[in-house]
């Protein structure tokens, strides 16, 4: 029974984390009684449950996730959407409109190739591509604003504990921010200068996600940038 690394230490794939009565959780695996990391990340544990928080990973959809994607293809029964993931998503026609429709005519009128959409994942099980819906409040075509792409693994940091970081960004910049779980963020401000300022700060959070005292530095940088745009 021993843990060989400290919390928040960077570990590499194949690094021995602990030996004995521990449970391998996120990004770790067990061989006999030894637990190893399977990814580059920060080590963490709660009780005897060990995990590694990844520095980088690709987005795997989960049911209920809010994602921002781009329509890349349209067909008879719906659209194909690029959601910044190894799996391209499907938006069926029936999930885009609620009333009865005359098949082909509507498809072009609702969404076109190149449109950005806010959508929710309603089904995904790894044997089939994820299915999206835009039949909910605040979902659907994006008509204005700017889109930034960051590493999906930095999204939890951008949101912060109970949304502290994202609420700070919203409060200081007075912008409307939508964070997709797939690492795509929609920024809507009154002016495009303010949008640029918020995007720069988001990039800063992505770069310095694993450092201490980030919230204070973000708050300071954002206030300075916003004051400069007014």
């Amino acid at each position: 029974m021993a843990i060989y690394t400290q919390k928040k230490q960077i570990v590499t794939p194949g690094e021995l984390l602990a030996q004995g009565e521990y449970y391998p959780e996120l990004n770790t695996f067990k061989e006999k009684d030894k637990i190893y990391s399977m990814i580059v990340g920060l080590f963490d544990y709660r009780g005897n449950r060990l995990s590694v928080v990844p520095l980088k990973h690709c987005y795997i959809p989960y049911v209920g996730d809010l994602v921002i994607g781009k329509v890349v293809d349209s067909g008879m029964s719906g659209w194909t959407v690029d959601i910044n993931s190894p799996y391209s998503a499907l938006l069926p026609l029936t999930e885009a409109i609620s009333r009865p429709h005359s098949m082909r005519k509507d498809v072009e009128g609702i969404l076109r190739i190149g449109d950005m959409i806010k959508a929710k994942v309603i089904a995904f099980d790894r044997t089939k591509d994820p299915i999206l819906t835009i039949r909910d409040r605040d979902l659907g075509k994006v008509t204005r604003g700017k889109v930034v792409k960051i590493l999906p693994s930095k999204i939890p940091r951008l949101i912060g504990k109970k949304g502290s970081m994202i609420n700070l960004l919203k409060k200081v910049s007075l912008c409307d921010l939508t964070v997709g779980q797939n690492g795509v963020i929609l920024v809507m401000c009154k002016s495009s200068e303010a949008e640029e300022a918020v995007i720069d700060v988001i990039r800063m959070i992505e770069r310095e996600a694993h450092t201490q005292g980030l919230t204070d530095r973000v708050s300071e940088a954002l206030r300075r940038r916003i004051a400069g745009t007014q």
Binding site: T12, M38, I39, V40, L55
Partner: peptide
Amino acid sequence: LADAGIPMRDL
């Protein structure tokens, strides 16, 4: 591969 964040048993 490790830099890409791909799960691996070892380097």
